[in-house]
Amino acid sequence: MSRRRLLLLLKPFNVYPSRYKDELSRPINPQILGYLENRCKVHKDAINICQDILQRKSVDWKPILRNDLVQPIHNVDLVVTVGGDGTLLQASHFMDDSIPVLGVNSDPTQVEEVEEFSDEFDARRSTGYLCAATVKNFEQVLDEILGGHKTPAKLSRISVCVNSHLLPTYALNDILIAHPCPAAVSRFSFRIKRDDQECTPLVNCRSSGLRVSSAAGSTAAMLSAGGFPMPVASQKLQYMVREPILPKAITSNLMHGLIGSEQSMHTVWYNKEGVIYIDGSHIFHSIRHGDNIEISSKAPVLKAFLPPHLSS
Rank of each mutant, 00 (worst) to 15 (best):
72 P>Q: 06
72 P>S: 08
73 I>D: 00
75 N>A: 12
76 V>R: 05
77 D>A: 08
77 D>S: 05
79 V>D: 00
80 V>Q: 01
80 V>N: 03
82 V>Q: 01
82 V>I: 10
83 G>D: 04
84 G>M: 13
84 G>F: 12
84 G>A: 05
87 T>M: 02
87 T>R: 03
88 L>K: 10
88 L>M: 14
88 L>C: 08
89 L>K: 09
89 L>W: 07
89 L>T: 06
90 Q>A: 14
92 S>W: 11
96 D>A: 15
97 D>V: 07
98 S>Y: 10
100 P>A: 07
102 L>H: 02
102 L>R: 00
103 G>Q: 03
104 V>P: 00
104 V>T: 02
104 V>R: 06
106 S>C: 03
106 S>Q: 00
107 D>G: 05
108 P>S: 00
112 E>Q: 12
112 E>Y: 08
113 E>R: 07
113 E>K: 09
113 E>W: 07
113 E>I: 10
114 V>G: 04
114 V>S: 01
115 E>V: 15
115 E>Y: 15
116 E>A: 15
116 E>L: 15
118 S>P: 03
118 S>Q: 15
119 D>N: 13
119 D>F: 11
119 D>Q: 15
120 E>P: 00
120 E>R: 13
120 E>F: 11
121 F>R: 07
121 F>E: 02
123 A>V: 07
124 R>K: 14
124 R>Q: 13
124 R>H: 14
